[in-house]
């Protein structure tokens, strides 16, 4: 069986399209709402869902995702519950789903057991900001045999010599961090993105998606001219926060995401 993330990128490439990856925090505002949001985001044209499993100390996150993580933890969103959520979602959708979390959550669950259970529940990959390839031996080994994607990061500060090993360790796609900083919407993005993507493309054929700071349709369009996709997180989470208590939560958030994609 082919990994849903790789299949999606293959299909998009054939159609000369770019991936739109939406990040939301599982359990924000509730696990039930997350379930509905995933289904609605797929309808809105999202290609891949990045589902955040909340961690108490998310050191790469800006205030928006920090707040959604704390909220979700209070809702009782644990890795176990998020896996169950994906299992239920798989009765309704085949959209690729990657989990984003911090390594302690996965380590606490045990790397091999995590990959086994995640695959069984229909999760397609994992993104861990505080796990560089050098410390990911166990996870990568388990993931390889299970055809489970391990997405690693390249940053503006990554030295040329590190790019190839990171690209080689990555599967599904490579996550390029647009800026030096934490997650969170920014007015403008650094000009280094384009030359950096070109540099990475020289050493790998794997899809490169750009995340951190992206919040407007213009930014999405500009980056997609060079990258294979974009990841939007904080901007969507902010919208979810805004309508967290509203009956129109799903409608409002999907309308916002449609605008991002349509440009």
């Amino acid at each position: 069986m082919n990994n849903r993330i790789s299949q999606t990128f293959d299909n998009l490439r054939l159609q000369k399209k770019k991936a739109f990856i939406a990040f939301i925090t599982a359990g924000h505002p509730s696990l039930k709402a997350t379930y509905n949001l995933v289904l609605a985001l797929e309808q809105a044209g999202v290609d891949i869902i990045e589902l955040g499993v909340p961690f108490s100390d998310p050191m790469a996150e800006g205030v928006t995702i920090q707040a959604s993580s704390q909220w979700a933890i209070k809702q009782g969103a644990s890795l176990q519950k998020v896996l169950n959520l994906v299992k239920h979602l798989r009765e309704r959708t085949q959209i690729p789903i990657a989990l984003m979390t911090y390594y302690n959550i996965v380590f606490n669950y045990a790397d091999e057991k995590f990959v086994k259970d995640a695959v069984a529940c229909g999760v397609d990959g994992v993104i861990i900001p505080d796990l560089p390839p050098a410390e990911a031996g166990l996870l990568r080994k388990a993931a390889r045999t299970a055809d489970f994607a391990t997405v690693f990061f390249i940053a503006p500060t990554t030295a040329l010599a590190r790019i190839k090993p990171i690209a080689d360790a990555s599967s599904g796609f490579i996550y390029y961090i647009s800026l030096t900083g934490v997650t969170g919407a920014r007015r403008s993005l650094p000009p280094t993105i384009i030359p950096d993507i070109k540099r990475i493309k020289r050493v790998t054929n794997k899809p490169i998606c750009v995340g951190f700071g992206i919040s407007t349709p213009q930014q999405v369009a500009a980056i997609n001219r060079f990258a294979d996709g974009v990841i939007v997180g904080s901007a969507i989470v902010k919208e979810i926060q805004k309508y967290a208590h509203s009956k129109n939560l799903v409608a409002k958030v999907t309308a916002f995401v449609r605008r991002l994609i349509s440009f």
Binding site: T157, A159, I166, I177
Partner: peptide, 22 residues
Amino acid sequence: KSGHFGSFGGCYAPETLMGLLI
């Protein structure tokens, strides 16, 4: 060499910091 004391220690850092840590 990579900061391990037996199975403890290591370098679980965001990629943005890796260059500087090296």
